[in-house]
Structure formats: structure tokens, C-alpha cells
Design a protein around this nucleic acid. Structure first.
Length: 469
RNA sequence: GGAGCCAUCGCCAAGUUGGUAAGGCCGUAGAUUGCAAAUCUGCUAUUCACCAGUUCGAGUCUGGUUGGCUCCUCCA
């Protein structure tokens, strides 16, 4: 397995800390709103990574956090009058609903920040004791970046000159402009805070990941050089979030946070960055109202995870056509029992995915498999051995890439109710009778009627089949 | 001001340590079909934004130009 390490900026062979084991931690969402397509893509990228590692027989432990204490959540609490837990539970549930609809496998560990406050407190206290962190008069606790000689190793973008036009706000009590908050003291009565030895307040954004990784993963790795194998997240998190995480953990624990760092690219909508200010945020929930989760998944994983993704309907439809082809092939082999996937096919796909998740190559290999199988079935529609193997191929695709797992006839009938189905069936029957009597005018009229209903039909050796267009 | 990324057929998009351009969509010609649809077959980039260099050889390396984009502030 080769993965691209965005810190070392090169593809590296994956050599886990512990043989045959892979620990992955991905930065999850801050739960103050519904998940948008960007969350989906990040989730999907690392889902693909975990699936690939599992297929390579690694024992994968996947962790993904929920940031459930944060300024924006508090703002929501104040706006709605609901309490913190009501809000975060609501959005966590909705997030999980969405990700499951997209076929994302649940993480093994899904820690919440509010459940890890002791771990954060002790990590911060440790840093204060070492004089790497300091408490200012307001009660805020800052990390002293000048105490970490490796600060900047992750993002490579910490300049030596302090007089650059950085947009970091200058707080007079900070020792260095780059210092960041580990703990924010509470402000006013409406604030939500927790008591600690240093002050009443709440955690800064970066500390939670460090603390949660330490809490949930460190015991599995003991005194190794690294806490976890792979740390992932969106490309925007590289700086400052991951830089700061790495610095805290390094200074608090004496070992590096992660052996490999991976970052996924952004989702743009019709060429524009998705953002609230542009009014083009696309929530997964809204997308799911229009498109089936499997179709969305298939589309969102079709571009390499490191590239930016430009979401638009034309490409989505293109991607859906590719999925349709897979399911039409599945129709041709249904019903049958799967045997074993074709060895060459299996190997080729695994090789592609082992190369830093080369999904484009994998998809191309699938296209070849589909067209080869169709070709053979055109010659011999009853090739039992091939049917079993083809089904096994498709099941393998489903397990590794997470699509193609539906019953093929129902795939083409998503969103059509029973009574419509019955109507379609009887129209097809009437058309077949007309065809038998060579009354083509009538049979064509019926076909037009069906197509007006959005139903396409196809006469095959196995009878007349229909699909939702 | 600083750090970094990208530019391959009408569209989406691969391209390993440099060796002579995957795949899909669209289009088109044919097989099949009562006609369609589905399926299959053929065709569809002497060329990789531009310029210069290294090399026997460069989409792939180096330098420069142009054009997009991201981060440095909450952000997947």
C-alpha cells in the first residue's frame, strides 16, 4: 500500500507501527448544523481508505470525533434556547443518518469532545507544568509555540519573520503571535463552561483531537514513536489545526502524533467554493432528497480524494450512467450464487486502490470487466460459471468501494410505488400482446405512454425489462 | 506580504522510477431489433497552457511566462 503523506509531500509505502494493524483518526464535524457535501467527501475518502486497508487484511481501527463544544454551538444554544446536548445530539444523529445513506461504515471509535474533558485538562495541565503553556489574566491558556522547536514541521508555512501580514489577531497577553488557545476562559453568565484547576472555561479547538487520540489510541501503541498511523482530514485543516495538534501532542507526550498525514480536497459547486456567504452550501440531506445515496456516493468517490471536486449535475448524471451499466450487468446474472471473483480482476483493482486510492484506475478496470462480461453473455447468455464469477466480482466491488450491492431490479425502480409498478407491468403485457399480433402502431403507442411516465423499456432475450429513466 | 497546489480530447478524468497518451460521457459508422432501448464492434488527442533547457528520448525533470485555485481567520 502506498499513501501520499501530505506533510512529507510524497507517496510512501504504508508501514504501520504495529504489523498488520492500522489506526486512523479523522477530524469529524463540529455539530452545529447539518453535514454538507464537503463533510461527505472527507468521510467518503477515509471510508475508502479504511475499506482498502481492510481488504489488504489490515486490522483497522477508525476513529472520528464530534466537536460538540464550540463557539458556534454555543451561539446556537443561545439562539434557540435549547440546551447544548439537545443540539449536539440532534446534529450527531443527522450526521450519522447522512453518512450511512452514503454507505460510510461507522467509525469504531466516535469520541465526543465533552466526554474527553478530563483528558484535555490533564494534557493542558501537563503543558503548563512544563512551562510550555501559560495562563493569562483572563484565564485563557495559550500554547507557547516558541518552546516547540519543531513547530511548523507539519504545514511548512510558519515564517520566521513575525511582521508578515498574517491575519492572526494580536492579543497583547500572548508571548508570541503564533501562540494559540488551549483553553478559553468563560465570558459572561450565558456561557457554557467547565471547571478546571487553571480556570473555568472550555477547550480550544485543537486540544480535543490531541487529547482524544491520546485517550483512545495511546494504550494500543504504548511507548512507540507515534500515537497513531494515519491522521486525516480536510485540506483546510493542515494549518493551523493539524500543526497545533501535532505541537501539543509532541510536547505533552514526547512522541509524534501520527506517522502519516492525509488530506482530502475540497468540494466546489459549479466551479465556486461552497460557503455560506456565497449561499451555495449544499447539504447532504438536500442532495439525498433528489438523488439516491448510492448514486451520490458513486459520484463523490469518482474523483481522486486529493483533487478538488467540482460538483455539478451533468457529471453526476454521467456517473449515474456508469452505475446503471453495472446494475444492468447484475440483472443479467440474477439470480445466481456468487463464486469467487476473477483473480486477475481482483488483483488489478487491489493494485489500483493500493496506489494511494487510485479510484479512476479502479473504475476503468470495472468498465472493462463489465464490457467483457456483456460481450460473453451476448454469445452465451446461460454461461453459469461466468454468472457466478460476475456476481462475485460485483460483490467484491460492493465490499471494497461500497456500490453495486442492491438488488438490480429494485435499483432501477427507486421511488416508484406499487400501484405504478402494477400499471407498468400491465402496460408491458398489453404491449407484448400487440407485438405478438404485429400491431406495431399499438405497441409503439404503449411504449410512448410508458416513456411519458418516465419509464424506459428494453426487449431482451429474458423478456421485456423496464427502468426508471 | 508569506506558504502551497493545479493546467491532458467538446465534458469528467488516469498517466508508476522520463520510453513514446487508460477509462467514462457525448458524437459517429455498423451488428442486433418490426422500430426502439439495452448490449457488442469500429472511429473519435502525432498530442498533453506557452517558451526555453537537460536527455538518444519529457505530459512526466529544471528554469521562466500566462491562466486558475487553496491556506495563512471558524471551516471537511
Amino acid at each position: 500500500m502506498q499513501i501520499y503523506d501530505s506533510v512529507k509531500k510524497q507517496k510512501l509505502p504504508f508501514e504501520p507501527i504495529r504489523p498488520r494493524k492500522a489506526s486512523i483518526y479523522v477530524c469529524g464535524p463540529t455539530v452545529y448544523d447539518d453535514a454538507h457535501l464537503g463533510h461527505a467527501r472527507s468521510s467518503l475518502s477515509f471510508d475508502l481508505l479504511a475499506r482498502t486497508l481492510k481488504a489488504l487484511r489490515y486490522e483497522v481501527t477508525m476513529g472520528k470525533n464530534f466537536t460538540d463544544i464550540d463557539d458556534k454551538i454555543i451561539k446556537k444554544v443561545q439562539e434557540t434556547g435549547k440546551n447544548l446536548e439537545e443540539i449536539t445530539t440532534y446534529y450527531i444523529n443527522r450526521y450519522q443518518e447522512d453518512m450511512r445513506a452514503l454507505g460510510v461504515t461507522d467509525a469504531d471509535i466516535e469520541p465526543k469532545a465533552t466526554e474527553s474533558l478530563e483528558a484535555m485538562e490533564s494534557m493542558i495541565q501537563g503543558l503548563i507544568d512544563k512551562d510550555i503553556a501559560y495562563v493569562v489574566s483572563s484565564g485563557d491558556v495559550y500554547f507557547d509555540t516558541s518552546k516547540d522547536s519543531n513547530y511548523g514541521a507539519i504545514s511548512h508555512q510558519v515564517g520566521k519573520d513575525e511582521d508578515n501580514q498574517s491575519r492572526v489577531e494580536h492579543t497583547s497577553e500572548k508571548r508570541n503571535p503564533k501562540d494559540f488557545a488551549l483553553w478559553k476562559a468563560c465570558h459572561g453568565d450565558n456561557d457554557i463552561c467547565f471547571d478546571t484547576k487553571f480556570s473555568k472555561g472550555r477547550p480550544g479547538w485543537h486540544i480535543e483531537c490531541s487529547a482524544m487520540i491520546e485517550k483512545h489510541f495511546s494504550h494500543t501503541h504504548g511507548n512507540d514513536e507515534y500515537s497513531i498511523d494515519i491522521h486525516g482530514g480536510g485540506a483546510d485543516l493542515l494549518f493551523p489545526h493539524h500543526e497545533n495538534e501535532a505541537a501539543q501532542s509532541r510536547c505533552a507526550t514526547g512522541h509524534e502524533l501520527a506517522k502519516y498525514w492525509m488530506h482530502n480536497g475540497f468540494v466546489n459547486i459549479d466551479g465556486e467554493k461552497m460557503s455560506k456567504s456565497l449561499g451555495n452550501s449544499f447539504f447532504v440531506k438536500d442532495a439525498l432528497k433528489i438523488y439516491d445515496g448510492e448514486i451520490l456516493r458513486n459520484y463523490l468517490i469518482s474523483v481522486h480524494y486529493r483533487n478538488d471536486f467540482n460538483f455539478n449535475e451533468e457529471d453526476l448524471l454521467n456517473s449515474k450512467k456508469r452505475l446503471d451499466k453495472l446494475y444492468r450487468l447484475k440483472k443479467r446474472v440474477t439470480p445466481t450464487k456468487a463464486s469467487k471473483p476473477n483473480i486477475k480482476f481482483h488483483k488489478a483493482i487491489m493494485e489500483a486502490m493500493s496506489d494511494d486510492l487510485n479510484i479512476s484506475k479502479a473504475l476503468a478496470i470495472i468498465e472493462e470487466m463489465i464490457s467483457e462480461a456483456n460481450d460473453k453473455f451476448d454469445e452465451n447468455p446461460k454461461d453459469k460459471g461466468l454468472k457466478k464469477e460476475t456476481l462475485a466480482n460485483i460483490e467484491f466491488i460492493d465490499e471494497l468501494l461500497g456500490f453495486g450491492g442492491k438488488e438490480p431490479f429494485s435499483y432501477f425502480q427507486i421511488g416508484i410505488d406499487e400501484s405504478t409498478k402494477n400499471k407498468i407491468e400491465s402496460l408491458i403485457e398489453a404491449r407484448n400482446i400487440a407485438k405478438k399480433e404485429k400491431d406495431y402502431a399499438k405497441s409503439d403507442t404503449i411504449r410512448d405512454e410508458l416513456s411519458a411516465m418516465g419509464i424506459a423499456i428494453m426487449d431482451t432475450s429474458a423478456g421485456t425489462l423496464w427502468e426508471k429513466m
